[in-house]
């Protein structure tokens, strides 16, 4: 069986949907921690709810990734660069898991409920603890910055493939004209 030249449709939907979700969450988080405005409470509630959605989404996405054949990088790319490309993808996955999990854990450690759209409340799975909150709160912020850095590099690399090298790597995620 030959390798496909594009990611599967489900993988592409997850990629672009999550790209939109992650940018919304990152900007919401950066603004929210500073704001004293009345909308803070609403945004905080949405951030927690969509954080749970982001966790479910990345699990689904990982399953799709592991169960579908991904397009091979072109032979024109040196082996080292291919390894870096793969590593960056798995780092992105790690960050996409670490963001919602650290958010959930820090709320746990603070003893604060994580309600999902007022529908249900996630169980608390760890004790209320100041040092634990301190740890997960800082992890949440540091991983956010790491994710931002990874995404910027990812976009730069994708555009480089699409605009300069024009080797079809960008099209493997944007899709191709039939």
């Amino acid at each position: 069986m030959s390798q496909p030249t594009t990611y599967s449709l489900s993988a592409r939907i997850m990629h672009w949907g999550m790209a939109f979700l992650l940018f919304s969450m990152l900007f919401a988080g950066l603004a929210m921690v500073q704001s004293l405005q009345p909308w803070h409470l609403t945004l905080l509630g949405l951030h927690k709810s969509f954080g749970v959605i982001a966790l479910i989404a990345v699990i689904v996405r990982l399953v799709i990734r592991l169960r579908t054949t991904t397009p091979a990088l072109p032979d024109s790319i040196p082996a080292l660069q291919k390894r870096i490309a793969h590593a960056s993808h798995w780092l992105l996955y790690a960050a996409m898991f670490a963001m919602p999990l650290s958010g959930y854990f820090m709320q746990n450690a603070a003893g604060r409920p994580v309600a999902v759209f007022d529908l249900f409340t996630l169980p608390a799975i760890m004790p209320v603890s100041l040092p634990l909150y301190g740890f997960f709160r800082e992890v949440h912020a540091l991983v956010a910055w790491a994710l931002i850095a990874l995404v910027l590099v990812h976009i730069a690399a994708a555009l480089h493939h699409g605009l300069v090298k024009r080797d079809g790597v960008l099209q493997s995620m944007t899709g191709r004209k039939k």
């Binding site: 004293l36 405005q37 009345p38 040092p131 909150y133 709160r137």
Partner: peptide
């Protein structure tokens, strides 16, 4: 929608974050 009430959350959270970090 009391603006002072709504402002308390973010300000408390920043104080909480700082002292929690110090305890960690």
């Amino acid at each position: 929608a009391d603006p002072i009430l709504r402002a308390r959350s973010a300000a408390y959270a920043e104080s909480y974050r700082r002292r929690a970090r110090e305890h960690f």
